[in-house]
Amino acid sequence: MGYWTNQLSGPTNPTTDSGWDDPPARKGFFTDTSICIGCKACEVACKEWNAIPEDGLDLLGSSYDNTGSLGASTLRQVAFIEQSGDRIAQARESGGRLVDLGMPAMRPADGPSPELVGQAATAVAEGEVPDFRWLMSSDVCKHCTHAGCLDVCPTGALFRTEFGTVVVQPDVCNGCGYCVPACPFGVIERREQDHFEAGTPNLGVAQKCTLCYDRLTDDQTPACAQACPTTSIKFGDLDDMVASAEERVETLHANGYTEARLYGTDRHDGVGGTGSVFLLLDEPEVYGLPPDPQVPTAELPAMFRQAGLAAVAMLVMAVGAFAGRRR
């Protein structure tokens, strides 16, 4: 029973669920934004390794982020957010509330520590909050446990690899575009024909991070993680990634940085936990991440049930129209 109920939501091992026998450990990223320096080496390495075409050189007026968002030709994107002291204090306070609540992912092994909360309060009270900060975060596909993109793909172009990651087969995808609105993180996108010159690879086809499938099969580290000079992007077995994320957030809390919080580590969230986990220093939406993502298919049985009832209603309407006296 547990197997079936967890096929659309909840914690599960997506690799064995998709029929891999004896797969290697699930792989993932831990992106620690607290040590990201915004160098964009990951963006460049990803573009280079995957031979992604240039998709416009624009100045967007959003700090040093001139990339904008993840998309068909941007599989890594470094976000930049400039914050003043009051915003930092707010972030510290909202994070402190999470520590108070003892959120599963935030709780040190022996329960939320009162001194820690106290330290943060003192830091805020004594004005130890800097008056400016730059948030930098390298965003990427989350390689969800329950991946909306994968669930809805009608051709089977999207598939679950033996590493538990989600990859598009560009030679199978027919560009139906259904995966694009189905991703709760707004990651995957179709490479539109009209934006590129003819002959560009994979035109009209959905594109997303492959977690460097072609490198993983050769025991290599993904290009972005390899290029990251600060180890802000860590790559490894997902369990280890989550463990080091939890360790790191505890350390930060212990030092009074209650604004630190984890994203994607909760296996009971709406997508069954993500394969790329993040340590953030403010609310997720500040970074353009959804605060409580949910895989659309979680509600698919209810949706089909409504459609079934509607189908019956349609038949009843027609029978009603034809029933009764002739003429």
Partner: peptide, 10 residues
């Protein structure tokens, strides 16, 4: 606070 008012889902 959104990320420069940009869309979250596509």
């Amino acid at each position: 606070e959104s990320y420069y008012g940009r869309q979250v889902v596509k």
